[in-house]
Amino acid sequence: MDEHWSVDGHRHFKAAGIRQVAYVPDAGLTKLIERCREDNEIETVMCATEEEGIGLAAGAWLAGQKSAVLMQSSGVGNTINAIASLITSAHFPLFTIVTMRGQWGEGNPWQVPMGQAVAPVLEAIGVKTFQADTAADVSPMIEAGLRMAYSTDQAIAVLVSQRVIGSKVWVAGSSEGKP
């Protein structure tokens, strides 16, 4: 069986010199978060809301460090003014990985409107989105996104499709969302 994308994701973080990773817990991100937490060279910051991750990224950059922000698609809605007003206005680089809900085979109606709005809303505020529809897309998009974010001072979001994450993860232990 192929390795989970988080193995390559963490490897690309190391190669790019990522030293700070902000996140709000999400089932689809668990493996990547755990890899980062186990890495003594990466400071992981659990946030109360995704918006905090945007401030953290700007603050880390001001000290000369590179960071990544990990969130679920619903959390993107919590970040919009911070990204537009702080990151886009001042041309801070930003690299974020978004695990998607509300698209491929979603069973929870609360997830659909925000999930469907993630890409157009991010693009409307100046974030370039790389949409990973297959597991094979994720690793090269993380690598390319990191390079682009920190070489060109752009805001880049890699959107990992629900098709990649799989439905088993997000309904584990719960009957909710099942047909």
């Binding site: 700070q20 401030g55 953290l56 880390a60 001001l62 702080l86």
Partner: peptide, 18 residues
């Protein structure tokens, strides 16, 4: 002059990195 609510976390990211 914007991004209301972000000052504390910008400071936190800076403090952790420096």
């Amino acid at each position: 002059a914007g991004a209301m609510g972000a000052a504390t976390t910008v400071g936190l990211g800076l403090a952790l990195s420096a």
